[in-house]
Amino acid sequence: MGWFIAGRLLAAIPVLFGVSVVVFTLLHFAPGDVASVLAGPMASEAIKEAIRESLGLNRPLPVQFLKWLGNLLHGDFGTSLVYKRPVAEFIFEKFFNTALMAVSGALLACMIGITIGIFAASKAHSLFDRVTMAVTMVVGSTPLFWLGLILVLLFALTWRVFPATGMTSPVGGGGFLDVVRHLVLPAVAAAMPSAAIISRTARACMIETLGQNYIRVARAKGLRRNLILRKHAFRNALPPIATVCGLELAFLLTGVFFVEVVFAWPGLGNALYYAIIAHDIPTVQAAVLLIALSFVVINLAVDVLNAWLDPRIRVSTARQGGR
């Protein structure tokens, strides 16, 4: 098990390096001249040249890349061209806000999705099953930005249950409950399509598992139906379900991009959105890098979780050591 994790970690290193190469090169060719943005519209060519010199922008590309990478490793993401202050100063707070929404959305999606999936599988081909699967089919292909607007229309404009935008109330806000109140609509919007996909996966995996021989054996043993569903079937259907949950969490990290824009949630997606519009390259680089990093880390975590869930991987190494 330890070796397995070590192997996966090692394999992630070239991927991470590749990610930084891709981020750097993609954005190096982005439109907009950093120097002219920094210097302002009225600046002379000489001033721009001086800025390029000071930022190292006129040196060969590989040199620039290594310098950029070295700075990254020291926690220096460069200076935002819009806010005129180090990206590192504000990007992590944005990242936290995004993670707050992505994780609560993913948790919500997992809970709802798995519950519906198991229930539908245990009543496969019943009316409940058919109706929920039709609904999840539709919800699963609903654009997040549209879903967000519909939720705003229903619960913020029509019934005024939850606030439509922001993370805290402008007056007297900022407490835990206030944040939760603001979190509800965007988290639900983000969670719904994922919940739909998770429930369909959970249902399919549960149905497949319920058809296995060991389930028939468990029934022949006289175990209660509920116990068979919860213990024998679910535990075996779990690895693919966990994989999909991980994929959904990873997807939500970018999916919240749209949700954040719709709900004006002060997260990474929103920051990225405005940085793109303003050609604020260092901020775009930092945001994209953080999202890609989380994506790699989540995939890694799912791999490790799956290995741990499979006794053939978890126990075989332990036994080799033990006997």
Partner: peptide, 13 residues
């Protein structure tokens, strides 16, 4: 390396 970027993020960038 490309798979390290979520599809939507890549498209946006």
């Amino acid at each position: 390396m490309v798979f390290a970027f979520p599809l939507v993020l890549l498209a946006i960038v």
